[in-house]
Design a protein around this nucleic acid. Structure first.
Lengths: 215, 215
DNA sequence: GTGTTCAGTTGAACATGTTCAACTGACTGC
DNA sequence: GCAGTCAGTTGAACATGTTCAACTGAACAC
């Protein structure tokens, strides 16, 4: 019954998270709703954070599907970035009421739900691969010097947009959409300009900085 | 005795936070160490978050003093930004072991300790005023078009650096210092370049975006 | 058949943030 | 003087994440 129980706890938890948010969903409620003892949930999931991590995986998958549909249409870097980011806003929209709570959990460095944690590896890989496809399939092509680092930078930008989204109380997250509409062409323009001699130095600095900081 | 008690609880809490971190400092321990009942701490501070907010205020004040000493030396935008940001890394260094916990608390949108919260108004104003002085006193002067918005953007950049700092496990937060050493001249360069015709459009886009997003 | 093992399960126990009804004592109005 | 008020204070009670010793039953060895 182990696998069944684990799946049951998982789906029950995700449903309650969607219905009630993070704080209002107690471990006791999850266990009771799933018809198991409290301690049993802990046998299958080390903590409440690990259950939230499962929710992230779900949402990331939804976003990846929507994003790939957008990417299949081709387009230049700006259009593709805009499409993928807006798909993200749409995919997350359902959770906006509780988004704040969840991001709180996610940002805690030690948390299993952190986008940088080992436990989030699956979500992170999936999400980053979408941004790799975004960059690689752009036409006109992204300058060679940037092609390697840009996907990860765009993934970080997406995290930043998500952080903004959390604080965005406007109806339908209009401000976040405005941010995406503005930031996508801005990034597209800067990437194009990075080829010009005046900006070549700045572009190199950015790449050198990314490498220096990473090591 | 109210004011005395409040000050006593405050200072006891800050001491324990510094000694033990956030999670390991229980409200009961604070109250006991201060020689008052648990409930009494709650009479003076609505929540544990509100006590953390007091810690932020302390740290922000230390940073402001150090930053102003740097700014008194003059310099161009790059030098001033570098100095202020490094002063921040130094001011926070003492708390790095527990920084992650505290930022977790700070980033929760509803939290009193959030840098955007009403309760953090005093810290925020103080910190932003430092960045205003940074921009206004820079020589050569910052282009007029940017002078108004730049301070807040730099303040946001500082929040970003702080977020990076939280995840920075390198000894002495070397990676964060590398980031600052790289990002200060980069921002300085972009601000200088913003006057050039090629970048004028991008600079205007940034400002327009900031305004659109804010409203 | 009998004993052993062990993944899976149980529910009570624990620590901690927070709430609350009750108490205290200084000050006020008369 | 005396009753009343109310800021300040108390400690028990509550809810919740998490832990843990004990139990169950199926699979396996002999």
């Amino acid at each position: 019954m182990s696998d069944d129980t684990k799946a049951l706890v998982r789906s029950t938890a995700l449903r309650l998270f969607r219905e009630r948010g993070y704080a209002a969903t107690t471990m006791r409620a999850i266990a009771q709703e799933a018809g198991v003892a409290t301690g049993n949930a802990y046998y299958h999931f080390a903590s409440k954070d690990h259950l939230v991590q499962e929710l992230y995986l779900d949402v990331t998958r939804e976003h990846a599907v929507a994003a790939r549909a957008v990417l299949a249409q081709g387009g230049d870097l700006t259009a593709r970035l805009r499409g993928v980011m807006l798909a993200g806003v749409d995919a997350f929209a359902e959770y906006h009421a509780f988004g704040a709570e969840f991001v709180t959990v996610a940002i805690r460095p030690g948390s299993a739900a952190s986008p940088f944690s080992a436990e989030s590896g699956a979500s992170r890989e999936l999400s980053q691969s979408v941004f790799r496809e975004l960059v690689e399939g752009a036409s006109p092509a992204v300058p060679a010097g940037l092609r390697e680092e840009l996907p990860e930078l765009l993934w970080l930008a997406q995290l930043g947009v998500t952080l903004f989204w959390v604080y965005d109380g406007s109806p339908g997250q209009r401000r976040t959409r405005t941010l995406v509409e503005g930031i996508a062409p801005l990034i597209g323009r800067l990437v194009r300009l990075s080829r010009l001699p005046v900006l070549r130095g700045a572009a190199d600095d950015v790449l050198a900085l990314v490498k220096a900081v990473r090591s």
